[in-house]
């Protein structure tokens, strides 16, 4: 039976996770409802298969419940924490399947990796993603493509080198330089 507690749908993330940590399944249900689209969307983006993505997302939620007591808001937003857990599981699933991912051809990649992403596109992002979007938009396109492929699509440098038709060393250095540049941009933003 599905439990539905509308009041909990408005509880702050950290308070909700506190309830999850205490084993309150109404809080668990509210957390699942709040994040299922985002976690499943990320899993599907990485593994590219609905069934595998569902398995990954289910496992992510169970892991979140199991470790909710360890969530520390000082280390990041609950959304980021939940997405990171999902991402790691999805990457593991991708490697287990030994699939060779092709270059993404979806609209998300086209937008994120376009030659000149518009700052206005940040407005279409969720509140917690807009700053990341604005920082990403400042990277040179070749670095941005590598960063997006690695972070959002879980591609290794070797896979990026193949899909982008560039040497492995170039893929590695673009990824490192892109992330380092983003780190500096984020630092400037917060200082």
């Amino acid at each position: 039976m599905r439990s539905r507690t509308p009041a909990l749908d408005h509880v702050a993330d950290d308070a909700l996770l506190a309830g999850v940590a205490l084993g309150d399944d109404a809080c668990v249900g509210a957390f699942v409802r709040r994040y299922q689209r985002r976690l499943f969307g990320l899993a599907l983006t990485i593994v590219g298969d609905v069934g595998v993505a569902e398995d990954v997302t289910q496992e992510a939620f169970l892991r979140i419940v199991r470790h909710a007591a360890a969530y520390d808001v000082r280390r990041g937003a609950a959304s980021t924490w939940a997405l990171t857990i999902t991402r790691h599981l999805a990457i593991d699933a991708l490697r287990l399947r030994r699939a060779i991912p092709t270059a993404p051809d979806d609209q998300v990649f086209a937008t994120l990796a376009s030659p000149a992403p518009s700052p206005e596109d940040a407005a279409t992002q969720s509140d917690d993603a807009a700053p990341a979007w604005l920082a990403l938009a400042q990277l040179p396109q070749e670095q941005r493509r590598c960063v997006v492929l690695a972070v959002i699509y879980g591609r290794t440098a070797a896979e990026i080198a193949e899909s982008e038709s560039i040497p492995l060393g170039t893929a590695k250095s673009r990824l490192r330089l892109g992330l380092a540049r983003l780190r500096d941009l984020v630092a400037q933003e917060t200082s």
Binding site: R33, Q36, F40, E54, W133, A135, V147
Partner: peptide, 25 residues
């Protein structure tokens, strides 16, 4: 990397996903 992962697209999971997660839980 943790900050960037928030850019991942959202997508509707299959029907009754929530029910199946809660049953496993």
């Amino acid at each position: 990397g943790d900050r960037l992962v928030t850019l991942a697209p959202s997508s509707d999971p299959p029907t009754d996903f929530e029910t199946r997660v809660l049953e496993r839980y």
